[in-house]
Amino acid sequence: MKIELRDIEMRFGARTVFSNLNRTVEPGTHLVLTGPNGSGKSTLLKVMGGLLTPTRGEVHWEASTNRSEVRKRLGYVGPDLTLYDDLTVAENLEFFHAFEDAPAASATQHLEALGLHDRRDSRYGSLSTGLKQRTKLAFALLKNPALLLLDERSLGLDPQGRKLIPWLMALEPNRTVVLATNDPSEFELGKENLELG
């Protein structure tokens, strides 16, 4: 999915997080957002996914500004997203996948790769933080999204789990992936970088 940021400004009260931001992200690009804490990486990630409206400027997704359309093709993992504690891993994925009109079996197709195959019947609320994040990654892949947004701050993965990020980014070559991170070892994952702050 192609994303065009046109003269984007984001303010929270009197504080301007970023302004005059112009950038075109071509389809299939892997973009890594870097910058110190508070520089607006997570905010920009949500603006790019149509989850936040910028104070000024426009975001175009393949020449459209329709946010509800982009959400249908969006995979997102961020700190403000969680799944149902009272449902199992498989129940969560099957519930969200049911809206896609795709074969039910494909809901859990990534569980093995994400190291969750033996936890599919565990309640989401009983999982450790790292396993919850892996379940959220499986959720983000449910729609086979054209745009995948990953907020590293929320991932909380162990060293083994961190190896999943390159795997995720390489899973679908035409998918646009945007990763917000503070970890210098992940700066090289992107074909493009954007430093904020």
Binding site: L51, R71, L74, Y76, G78, D80, L81, T82, L83, Y84, D85, F96, F99, E100, F139, L142, K143
Partner: peptide
């Protein structure tokens, strides 16, 4: 409060 509304918003149509 639990943060599941975002996952639901990304997946399910409002009327449903």
């Amino acid at each position: 409060e639990t943060g599941t509304d975002l996952a639901l918003r990304l997946s399910a149509p409002g009327s449903a």
